[in-house]
Amino acid sequence: MLKTLTASAAGIATALALGATAAKAEMPEQINFGIISTESATVLEASFTPFLEDMEKSLGVTVKPFFASDYAGVIEGMRFGKVDVAWFGNKSAIEAVDRAGGEVFAQTIKDDGSRGYHSLLITHKDSKLNSLEDVLACDQTLSFGNGDPNSTSGFAIPGYYVWALNNKEPEDCFARVTNSNHEGNAMAVASGKVDVATNNTESIYARLAKTNPEAASNIKEIWRSPIIPSDPMVWRKELSAEVKQQMYFFFMQYGRFGDLEKVKRERAVLANLSDGWGPFLASSNAQLLDVRQIEAFKDKIKAQNAGDEEGVKAAEAKLAELQAYSGIVGQAGY
């Protein structure tokens, strides 16, 4: 586990210096950039195109977006070499690291400099539901829009804070449970098709408020999670050192170095991505520790409820290992 968590840190310290001098390093003919399905592919492509065009110019090779109907599609794309670098949430990044040979190398931040966001439960503005306690009344009369199973804020975080800590599952509380991405859940709530749904502060207050203010005005927040670390960027660890150096240099200098006009234009491009990003920060697989601990705790609760003593021991051992490592790297040890 610790080897996996620390793998992406190797070689990163010298990447900026090397990237600047490796301008003509051997590159593949094409880089495929995976984009998780938080919104429709049309919306995502429009916002990411200027950034990918700049990446293409910097690397000197074609950079193509890779879309899938769900998060798993991007994970599988990386697993089979069809995705070289991707934007993931923390939960889906764990899957990419563990199952698809990925490595975290950078972290997104917001354009105001903040390094996190929050998972939400949302409902229609006219709903009688006003709190988590109202949801946990569990009268089996309402419908629930859960997130993609590989989504951090749409599934993993509410799965822990809303359900596991209260010893419940969505099926215990609702007559109907569906799964969708953030945009789909937001629109379902705004139109009254779903009574309660998961979402996050980025999707509702940064994206939907801009792209569909009428729908956003019909939504109210009834629960907010503790802060979640901002999304990671992940590359295939099989990529050559030369490719990683050039790619890392591009990400770290973007919107940060150069003349005023260049920085201003790149900051505007970043501000149009997702909930509005700022320049990237260096990161590693250690960024995933918080969500790994949440997943391990959920495993422990599930094993306890099933009377699985061996499962409880395995989950406790995993939690102890993760907590020990977390104590070393701390909050800023990515």
Rank of each mutant, 00 (worst) to 15 (best):
R224G: 06
V97Q: 05
T42A: 11
A93T: 07
A93L: 10
S180R: 05
V291F: 00
L136V: 09
T198G: 10
F105R: 10
A15M: 14
M252W: 02
N32G: 01
N150R: 01
S114P: 06
P158F: 00
E26H: 05
K91P: 01
S8M: 07
A20I: 11
A209F: 00
A190R: 13
V85C: 02
A186C: 12
Y254H: 09
L59C: 14
I219Y: 06
S203G: 09
Q245S: 15
T4D: 01
S37T: 08
R265A: 13
A96M: 09
M187S: 12
S240I: 14
T6P: 01
F251H: 11
P170N: 13
S203F: 05
S283E: 03
F174V: 10
P50Y: 01
V43A: 08
I157Y: 04
L165M: 09
L288C: 06
S127M: 15
I294G: 01
G258W: 04
S58W: 05
K300A: 06
I35R: 00
N146D: 15
L18C: 09
T201H: 08
I328W: 00
V63M: 00
F250C: 14
V243Y: 02
F80Y: 11
K302N: 14
P28E: 08
L16T: 10
N199R: 06
L322E: 02
A106N: 12
N146K: 00
D195L: 06
A72T: 07
A286N: 13
A320S: 07
F33H: 03
T49D: 02
G147K: 03
V74D: 03
L289A: 04
E261V: 10
C138Y: 05
M78G: 03
A68I: 03
N166V: 10
V97I: 12
S127K: 12
Q331S: 14
K264A: 11
G330M: 09
L273S: 03
T4Q: 03
S40W: 03
D139L: 01
